[in-house]
Amino acid sequence: MTIRFAVVGTPGDRRFTMFRDAVLSHGLPEPHLIPWRDVLAQQGHPGGARASGLVPEGALVRIDSPGEDAGADALLRGPGDPTRVGGGAAWYAAFTRGLRTIASIPGVTLLGDVDEIAVLFDKRRCHAVLERAGVPVPPAFEAASYDDLREKMAERGWARVFVKPAHGSSASGVIAFQTHAGRVKAVTSAAWVGDVLSNSLRVRSYEGEADVRRLVDVLAPDGLHVERWFPKASIGAEVFDLRVVTVAGVPTHAVVRASRTPMTNLHLGGRRGDLEAVRSRPALWERVLDVCSRAAACFPGSLSTGVDLMVGGDWRSLAVAEVNAFGDLLPGLGDLSGNHRDTYTEQVRALLSAAKGGDGGTNHPKAASGGANRPDSARRASWT
Results as ranks from 00 to 15, higher is better:
residue 243 R to A: 03
residue 238 E to A: 11
residue 339 N to D: 13
residue 302 S to R: 05
residue 243 R to D: 11
residue 312 G to Q: 01
residue 295 A to S: 15
residue 356 K to A: 15
residue 229 W to E: 11
residue 304 S to R: 13
residue 242 L to H: 04
residue 229 W to I: 01
residue 318 L to T: 07
residue 334 G to I: 10
residue 328 D to A: 15
residue 261 T to N: 04
residue 358 G to T: 14
residue 304 S to L: 15
residue 305 T to Y: 04
residue 339 N to L: 10
residue 272 R to Q: 12
residue 252 T to P: 07
residue 352 L to F: 05
residue 278 V to L: 07
residue 235 I to H: 14
residue 360 G to D: 12
residue 254 A to I: 11
residue 358 G to Y: 12
residue 337 S to F: 06
residue 331 P to V: 06
residue 233 A to W: 09
residue 344 Y to D: 03
residue 302 S to C: 13
residue 334 G to H: 13
residue 247 V to M: 09
residue 311 V to T: 05
residue 328 D to Y: 00
residue 303 L to E: 12
residue 318 L to S: 08
residue 246 T to C: 12
residue 351 L to G: 06
residue 360 G to M: 03
residue 270 G to R: 02
residue 308 D to Q: 13
residue 327 G to K: 04
residue 253 H to R: 03
residue 335 D to G: 03
residue 249 G to F: 03
residue 271 R to S: 10
residue 344 Y to T: 02
residue 363 N to L: 10
residue 304 S to P: 09
residue 270 G to H: 03
residue 349 R to Q: 12
residue 261 T to L: 03
residue 302 S to D: 05
residue 345 T to P: 01
residue 316 R to F: 01
residue 249 G to Y: 02
residue 304 S to M: 15
residue 310 M to W: 09
residue 259 S to N: 01
residue 358 G to R: 14
residue 324 N to C: 08
residue 327 G to M: 00
residue 319 A to L: 00
residue 356 K to F: 13
residue 343 T to R: 02
residue 295 A to E: 11
